[in-house]
Nucleic acid binder design. Sequence first.
DNA 1: CTCAATGCAAATGCTTTGCACTGAT
DNA 2: ATCAGTGCAAAGCATTTGCATTGAG
Lengths: 149, 149
Amino acid sequence: MNELTISYEDFIVKFRKTITSLGLKNSNQREYVLKILFQSNSHLSVDEIGQEVLSKCSHKISTATVYKILKLLEELKIVNCITIGKNDKKVYELNLKSHHDHMVCQECGNFIEFYNEDIEKLQKEIAKKNNFLINSHTMIIYGICDKCQ
Amino acid sequence: MNELTISYEDFIVKFRKTITSLGLKNSNQREYVLKILFQSNSHLSVDEIGQEVLSKCSHKISTATVYKILKLLEELKIVNCITIGKNDKKVYELNLKSHHDHMVCQECGNFIEFYNEDIEKLQKEIAKKNNFLINSHTMIIYGICDKCQ
DNA sequence: CTCAATGCAAATGCTTTGCACTGAT
DNA sequence: ATCAGTGCAAAGCATTTGCATTGAG
C-alpha cells in the first residue's frame, strides 16, 4: 500500500511546475510541508506537521501558514484529509498512494489501510442506481486492532 | 430505510425506563430532543435541534443542554452522530433505523441513505483477515445527486 | 518592483465547563 | 430534602481572517 512510485526529487520538481503554471509563487514553507508529508508513513495533524517542520527542517512555521498550505494542497488534490475518531481530529496524507480506506483502532489510535476492489465496485453500482455522480468517498471501520485485543 | 417499528409513545416509555434504571432523572428537555429526532427524517445539527425544539415544542432550550443531552444519548446508543462534508458539520439521528451508509450531495447537501449487505460482508472479511474487531463503521460517498446534475 | 506568501494576533465557530438555580424523585 | 438537570456565561480548542512584513519572480 505504501510503495511510492516517484522520488521526492521528481515529486518536488513536478510540484514547482504546478505552482508556477498557476501563476503562484513557491516557498520554502510549502516544500517543508511536502517533505514532511512525503517522509511520513502515517497521517499527520496540523500540529504534528508544524512540529516535524521544526525538528526536521529546523524552521519554525506558523500554524496559520500550515493551514493555508494544506488548504491549497487539498484543492490541488495533492493531499487528502480525513476526520477520524472520537475527538474528530483532522489528519492529512499525501495523495501519492493509491486510494485506500482505513480501520482505526479505538484503543491505540493506529490505522490499518486497506483497499478492496469489490467494495469499490459495489459503491459504483449503488451510485449508478441512484443516479449519483461519485466524487470521492471515505470509509472508516472503528474497532480494536490485533495488538490491543 | 425509514420504517420505524416502534411508536413514539412506546419509544418514550422505554426511554423513561432506561433513564430510571440508571438512577438518572428524566426531563422535559430530553423528551423534546427525542421528539424532534423522532419526527425528523433527516440528520439534524445541534443548532437545528435547538430551533426545532423552540418552534415545535415552544420551549427555548440552551445549546449547552442540547450538547449534554446528545452526549448522553450517544453513550446510551440511542442516537448516532456522523461528521459530514466540507465544513465537517456534526449531525445526529436516532438509532432506531437499521444501519445504513450515506451519499452526500456536495451541491445541495442532501443525503441519500443506503444499505448494502455485500459491502457489510466484505468489511467483515477484511477485518477478520487483519484480526481486527469491528465496533462500527462509517462510509460516506461524496458527489452530486440526481437533481443537482 | 510587484504581488503572493508568511506570520502574528485577533476573530470566529463549535463544543465543553463551572456554577448557581431549578426541578424530578 | 436531595441530587440530577438546566442555563447562562466563561473558557477551550481548532480553524480562519486581516493586515503589515517578507520574499520570490
